[in-house]
Structure formats: C-alpha cells, structure tokens
Simulated assay, not measured.
Amino acid sequence: MTRQLGSGKLVIATHNAGKLKEISALLAPYGVDCVSAGALGLPEPAETGRTFVENALIKARAAAEASGLPALADDSGLAVDALDGRPGVYTADWAQRQWFEGEPGRDWYMAMGKVEGLLQQLGPGASRACAFHCVLALAWPDGEHAIYEGKAAGKFSWPPRGTLGFGYDPVFVPEGREHTFAEIDPEEKHAISHRADAFARLKADQFGA
C-alpha cells in the first residue's frame, strides 16, 4: 500500500507561481497546504534524468531533503512517435533561445517548427501520432516515494492553431477531437489533459477520490 500523504504542508518543487496556484487548487479540498520551493528559497536541482520519471524524482527528492517535508514535483513534455519519443524530456529545451538568437527566453514557435521540420524530413507518410506525458513524483524526507503517470494521446498538426494554450498546445490535437489544445476552452482542456490524468491517479491513490 502506498504511503498516505494526509493533510498538512506539502512542498511543490517549483519556482513557478502559476504552477503552484494550479496544484494548490487541485489539492485544497484534501486539506493540503502547498508551499513552493521558491518561497522556501530552495535551489533548483539540475534535471539530469533521461526520462520524465527520473527528472520528477530528482526535483521531488531534492525539495523533500532540503525542507524536511513531503514534496511533489512534476515533469512533462511531448513525445512524437516517429521521432523516437523526442523531444521528450527536452521539450522545453527545444524552445530555449541560444546566445546568438537574441534575448534569453523560450521560443515555442521555433520548437514547434523544429518538430515539423524533422517530420517533413521523414516524408509525407510519417506518422504524426504523439502524446503529452506528465509524471508526478511524491517524495518524503526519508526517501520513500510514489509515482503517478498521466498521458494525453493525439496527433501533431501543422500549422499551429489557437491562442488559448501555451507551449506546444497549438500543434497538438487530442485524440477524438478536431481542435488543438490551444483552441479548446482552458477548463475543458484541463479536464482531458495529461496533467489531469496524472492528478486523478494521485488523488485516487492518496485520498481515495
């Protein structure tokens, strides 16, 4: 049986205020008091893993050990079948501007274009099947942990469509739909997303929800 989290303080291993707000809202009904690693002044560990599970565990364990509290981390990204699962754990890195490309930051259009370019090189018959993956890692200071994996299957579409999403959302059409994640109302998207799937598994295991 998985160790139960229960109510109390939980460190969310992120420095992103938006992610903290989203996760806090999901866990609030269960009496969980979320605080970010950023608010505690915890450093961000190097994500040296080769899988979503490895990177999520690196972040969760680092936050749990540094804070002495249970910690939750997520790692997510897009995996394209014909590209052997790329960009995968490098999903965000593909959007990172290089020093010679102007101001620092992320260029998601460039990242989406890189995927399209690689698919074009494979020819018109290349599969465009892909999936968004989300892994949630829950870690305790003593080293115990639990993993919850979520997935949203779909296809890579070009050109990008929609302005409601972020990242690769404008090129991702979820299975059974005609519109991209960036064309779907955010509340509807959150209900069918890879993160929603992972959190449903976490809540079922931890809180019987």
Rank of each mutant, 00 (worst) to 15 (best):
R50T: 11
M110R: 14
K21C: 00
P124T: 08
E47C: 10
V173A: 00
E188T: 14
A137H: 08
G68C: 02
A131I: 00
D107G: 02
S76P: 08
L122R: 15
V115W: 14
F181Q: 02
A131S: 10
L42E: 03
G162S: 08
L119A: 08
T14H: 03
A37M: 09
G68R: 11
H15N: 14
A182D: 03
S157M: 12
A13W: 07
P174F: 03
I12L: 15
L119T: 06
D197Y: 08
W99Q: 09
D185K: 15
A79S: 15
A63M: 03
A71G: 02
A182Q: 04
S24D: 07
I147V: 15
F199T: 05
L57Q: 14
F181M: 11
G105R: 04
F172A: 01
H145N: 07
H179Y: 03
A152W: 09
L83A: 09
E149V: 13
E116G: 05
Y90T: 00
S127P: 12
V135S: 05
P29V: 06
D142Q: 07
A204M: 12
S24T: 14
T91R: 03
G117A: 07
G176S: 05
I184F: 07
D197T: 12
A25E: 15
K19M: 03
Q98M: 10
G165D: 06
L40K: 01
D84C: 09
G208E: 04
T163P: 00
A71P: 00
D84L: 12
G208K: 13
L27Q: 03
A153K: 07
